[in-house]
C-alpha cells in the first residue's frame, strides 16, 4: 500500500463542509468511456492544489463537473458548504467560484479592461434602462467595476495593454488576461485548466508567481490542472493524481514524488523526474 493511500482520502461528514471544494464519489462516463470513476477528495481553504495525470485521465472532466458544465452520473460536489448533484453554472460566480479554460476563452472583440470588468457581471444590479439613461446607481456600479478591473490589471502587470482588444495580444498575455478576469471578483475558489500550457519558461515562472500571489494576497483557494511537473511540484501544497478516471494518489509534492504508483502511471522512472524538475 503506498504511503499516501494509507489514510482514508476523504471523510464526507467532516471534510466537505469546512473545505473550499470537495468532491464525493464522482463518476462520469461518455457513452461507455469512463471519464471519472468514484473520485473523492477535498481541498482546504487557502490551499493550492494541483491535479495531474496523463492525457485523458479525466482532469478537465473533473473541472467541468465542478463548474457545472458536465453533469456527473453519480456523486456530489461541495462548494463552500453547499452540496450539489449538479453544479448550477449560472450561479457559479455567485458561489464564489471562477475558472479559466484550457483553450483561451477570452472575449476577443472586447478590450482587455472590458474583459476583466466582465468578470464582475454577476454583481451587476442595474437594469438596461438604468444603464442607457445613466442613472446614478448604474453609473456608480459601472465605475466601480472598471476601478476593480484596473486594480487587477495592475496586479497582473497588464496595465500597459488595457485598451487593446484582447484577441490581438500574444498568447501568454491572453492567458494572464483570463486569469485577471477570473480573479477580479475575488473568488473563494479558482479553477485553472492548464494555465501554463504553451508558455515559455519565463512566462511560466511569472504566472506561478501570480498564482501564488493570488493565494497569499487575496486568500483564494486554487485548484489547477498542469502538465509541467516541475512547476506543479514547486507551486502546490498538495497534488491529486488521476489515471483512467480514478484518483490514484493524493498528497504533498514529496509524497507524490516518491509514490511508486504515481511514478508507474505518470511520472515515469525516477531519473526522468529529476531531469524534468529543472524545467
Amino acid at each position: 500500500m503506498p504511503a499516501v493511500l494509507s489514510e482514508p482520502l476523504f471523510s464526507p461528514a467532516a471534510g466537505a463542509v469546512s473545505s473550499a471544494l470537495a468532491v464525493e464519489a464522482l463518476s462520469l462516463s461518455f457513452g461507455g468511456v469512463t471519464a471519472l470513476s468514484e473520485v473523492s477528495f477535498a481541498v482546504a481553504p487557502g490551499e493550492i492544489r494541483a491535479v495531474i495525470g496523463p492525457n485523458g485521465a479525466g482532469k478537465s472532466s473533473l473541472l467541468n463537473v465542478v463548474s457545472g458544465l458536465y453533469r456527473p452520473d453519480r456523486g456530489r460536489v461541495w462548494l463552500g458548504g453547499h452540496s450539489f448533484a449538479s453544479v448550477p453554472t449560472d450561479r457559479l460566480a455567485t458561489l464564489g467560484v471562477s475558472r479559466t479554460f484550457q483553450n483561451l476563452a477570452l472575449f476577443k472583440g472586447l478590450s482587455v479592461l472590458d474583459n476583466v470588468a466582465a468578470g464582475l457581471s454577476h454583481r451587476l444590479r442595474a437594469g438596461v434602462f438604468a444603464q442607457v439613461i445613466g442613472l446614478p446607481a448604474a453609473r456608480r456600479e459601472r465605475a466601480e467595476g472598471y476601478a476593480r478591473a484596473e486594480e487587477l490589471l495592475a496586479f497582473l502587470h497588464l496595465d500597459g495593454v488595457r485598451d487593446r482588444p484582447a484577441g490581438t495580444l500574444p498568447y501568454g498575455m491572453q492567458k494572464r488576461v483570463e486569469l485577471a478576469r477570473a480573479l477580479v471578483a475575488r473568488p473563494r475558489l479558482l479553477l485553472l485548466d492548464e494555465p501554463m500550457a504553451g508558455m515559455t519558461l519565463t512566462e511560466k515562472r511569472d504566472l506561478s508567481g501570480h498564482i501564488r500571489a493570488a493565494r497569499d494576497d487575496l486568500g483564494t483557494t486554487i485548484v489547477l490542472i498542469e502538465h509541467d511537473v516541475g512547476v506543479v511540484m514547486g507551486l502546490s501544497d498538495r497534488i491529486a493524481v488521476l489515471d483512467y478516471g480514478r484518483l490514484i494518489a493524493d498528497g504533498t509534492p514529496d509524497e507524490i514524488r516518491n509514490d511508486p504508483v504515481v511514478i508507474d502511471a505518470y511520472l515515469g522512472v525516477a531519473h526522468d523526474l529529476e531531469a524534468g524538475e529543472g524545467i
Binding site: 463548474s67 449560472d90 457559479l92 460566480a93 476563452a105 472575449f107 472590458d114 470588468a117
Partner: peptide, 19 residues
C-alpha cells in the same frame, strides 16, 4: 459588453455569471 461576451465565448460568459 455582455452582448459581445455572448458572441465571443458563450460558455465563458455563462461561467462569469452573465445571464
Amino acid at each position: 459588453r455582455a452582448l459581445v461576451a455572448l458572441r465571443d465565448h458563450e460558455t465563458a460568459a455563462r461561467v462569469i455569471g452573465i445571464p
